[in-house]
């Protein structure tokens, strides 16, 4: 493996310089090595093994049996798989579109100097640090038909809602809970973005007589774009990986409408003892994610300011 980036040139001085460059390249490589080795061992190997197993029938108790592409073929024909794809899309869009909008609003509000700012920030951030298991247990109780939320609604004479036992509201309930849990995280990210914007930009805009909305629309928002891109990428990753929320609150029901792909993977592998099939689902999921990320990159470069 050659790690040397530069070309060999003939003059002595340049050779000396290239020798230094080479040393530097080695140093750089060595800095990356511990992390790269650990990734290779604890992520790379398991992922390759996952890919390998996706071509097998494996119940984890008897040795894997080769099946070729059968796992993939039967998945594409399985309505339950497509239902899960849909559930995942609904969960991610339903959760993170409101989360991002709310986070941006909160960050704009919190970006002013006022008393108790730190307190508000901490409060909004608190749900982020809680474990999803705990959060889901709390919200399952909150969403109970005769529970606190419906009681609150009752004070405004609103009929109780079947949050967890209706196919319409169960996805809504999950989105509400996850939004509550993650909005603080994205708020802090946006807050960081806002603080990175030099005040001169806004001042210049104000001198030009721009209104508050115009300042936001044409100065703040474009400058926040890198944060937005980052936040969207994070949402996608968080959203796709999540299954504790569904597992605890709805168990994937009613009738499978909240059985997201991550939950399907878990259920298929450990519940149904079809690990080969479960790994095939994750490989498909991986491909989808990579595709979306690449599209997002293209979108980013296409509309760069």
């Amino acid at each position: 493996m050659t790690i040397f980036p530069g070309r060999r040139l003939k003059t002595n001085g340049v050779r000396r310089k290239s020798h230094l460059k080479r040393k530097e390249a080695w140093a750089g490589f060595l800095f990356a090595l511990p992390a790269v080795l650990m990734f290779a061992a604890f992520s790379g190997y398991p992922i390759l093994r996952t890919l390998y197993l996706s071509f097998f029938d494996y119940n984890m108790l008897t040795p894997p049996k080769f099946k070729g592409l059968e796992n993939y073929v039967s998945l594409f024909q399985d309505p339950l798989f497509w239902q899960s794809v849909r559930a995942t899309a609904v969960y991610i869009l339903g959760t993170y579109v409101p989360t991002i909008i709310l986070a941006l609003c909160l960050a704009l509000l919190l970006n002013r100097k006022f008393r108790l700012r730190g307190l508000f920030r901490t409060l909004y951030f608190t749900p982020v640090v809680m474990s999803m298991v705990v959060v889901a247990v709390i919200w399952k109780l909150l969403f109970f038909y005769q529970g606190p939320l419906n009681m609150l609604l009752g004070y405004f004479s609103i009929q109780p809602i079947q949050w967890l036992s209706s196919t319409t509201f169960a996805p809504v309930a999950l989105a509400v809970m996850t939004t509550w849990k993650s909005v603080g995280y994205f708020t802090v990210l946006y807050l960081a973005g806002l603080q990175g914007i030099p005040t001169e930009y806004r001042e210049a805009g104000m001198i030009d007589g721009a209104t508050g909305w115009q300042l936001f629309r044409f100065i703040t928002l474009p400058l926040l774009k890198p944060i937005t891109v980052f936040v969207v990428a994070m949402s996608l990753l968080f959203g796709v990986q999540e299954f504790t929320a569904q597992y605890v609150m709805t168990g994937g029901g009613p009738n499978g409408v909240t059985r997201v792909l991550a939950l399907l993977v878990y259920e298929t592998g450990f519940g149904f003892m079809k690990m080969g099939r479960a790994t095939a689902i994750s490989i498909i999921l991986f491909v989808i994610l990579v595709a979306i990320t690449m599209l997002q990159r293209r979108w980013l470069t296409a509309t760069d300011y």
Partner: peptide, 29 residues
């Protein structure tokens, strides 16, 4: 901050690990 052969590939490889659902890699791990 460094330039060397394979750097970008390694970085992309590291990022790609983010996209695999953790439950399935648990078993080989």
């Amino acid at each position: 901050k460094f330039r060397y052969y394979g750097r970008d590939m390694m970085f992309l490889g590291v990022l790609a690990t983010l996209m695999v659902p953790i439950q399935v890699i648990l078993v080989p791990l």
